[in-house]
């Protein structure tokens, strides 16, 4: 028995060990190392000087940080009130075959999620440029060859083209998630509702939506986790401009670290980004847990 237990432990270590070790070394160790560096003024070479919380103080008093945070917030909002509801709606439409050619639409909605961020950024960089595709089309339509698209040039609107691209690109993921879950719905139940004379609206409101609430909640967590992390598209599309108006925290981190050799400062931003996303996810998870408990109680 003892021997068996020992051999079990050895097998466990052999089977699970490699994944845990490689994961821990690559993901956890560098983050801890950065945490240490974030309290220094290390410039990439020489000996780092310990500077306490200076980097954090500087960051929190930098308007670009707060503006980046604001833009990150908008990215979260686009996921929560844009991608997820739209993804659900589209999944429902396709699932219930409310339109023709559902196979075609499925492809059109899902394919963008697979495209590479670099391609999307290069493409839509040209589409939304002041003298880009959209501007040229408006210009030709209105007979004004000088037309230039400047509505995205103000501080408040600079992030909008990026948000549109995100909405278009990633709604497909939530669409697929909801579609998969809708397909688990029991057909008999729907059949019965239809026979009872329920309208499509009633079916959606009373049957489908309550059933999908857990999926909405997990999707929301997924969205929040994703929103702080990606900036590749923005990097190539606008590089944070005009000025810093379309900056997000991830890009702010890259620019500070690699353009100005402020490794200590960049590390501090990295730590804040990671903490922020962990914090938001903890909050969302606890909300989700409470919700689903209430939902289960209500259902029984």
């Amino acid at each position: 028995m003892v021997l068996a237990a020992r051999s079990n432990r050895a097998s466990y270590a052999l089977l699970a060990g490699p994944a845990i070790v490689i994961y821990g070394l690559v993901i956890v160790v560098p983050v801890l190392y950065s945490l240490v560096l974030s309290f220094t003024d290390w410039a990439g070479m020489g000996v780092p000087n310990f500077v306490g919380f200076t980097n954090y103080v500087v960051m929190f008093s930098d308007p670009i940080f707060w503006w980046g945070l604001r833009n990150n917030g908008l990215v979260v909002l686009v996921s929560l009130i844009g991608q997820i509801p739209l993804g659900f709606f589209l999944a429902y439409v396709i699932y219930r075959r409310l339109v023709r050619h559902s196979g075609f639409f499925e492809a059109v909605i899902f394919f963008p999620a697979l495209m590479s961020p670099v391609v999307v950024a290069l493409l839509f960089g040209v589409v939304f440029a002041p003298s880009g595709l959209v501007a040229e089309m408006i210009g030709r339509a209105t007979g004004n060859p000088m037309f230039s698209l400047t509505i995205f040039n103000t501080k408040n609107t600079a992030i909008i083209p990026y948000l549109i691209v995100l909405l278009w690109m990633y709604t497909g993921i939530y669409f697929i998630i909801f579609l998969a879950n809708l397909q688990k719905t029991s057909p008999e139940m729907l059949e019965a509702a239809v026979l009872d004379g329920a309208s499509e609206w009633n079916i959606l409101k009373s049957l489908i939506v309550p059933q999908q609430i857990p999926v909405f909640l997990t999707s929301a967590i997924y969205a929040v986790a994703g929103s702080l992390k990606s900036f590749e598209i923005l990097w190539i599309m606008t590089n944070g401009g005009p000025s810093y108006y379309s900056n997000v925290l991830g890009l702010y981190m890259i620019q500070n670290t690699f353009s100005f050799y402020k490794y200590g400062f960049g590390s501090a931003i990295a730590i804040v980004v990671i903490l922020l996303s962990v914090f938001m996810i903890l909050i969302l998870s606890s909300i989700a847990a409470r919700f689903s408990r209430r939902f289960e109680q209500g259902a029984t």
């Binding site: 986790a225 981190m253 590390s267």
Partner: peptide, 14 residues
């Protein structure tokens, strides 16, 4: 919760 993008600075340094 962690992606390459969010930990690129630590990764690069390491």
């Amino acid at each position: 919760l962690v992606t390459i993008s969010s930990s690129i600075v630590p990764l690069f340094i390491a």
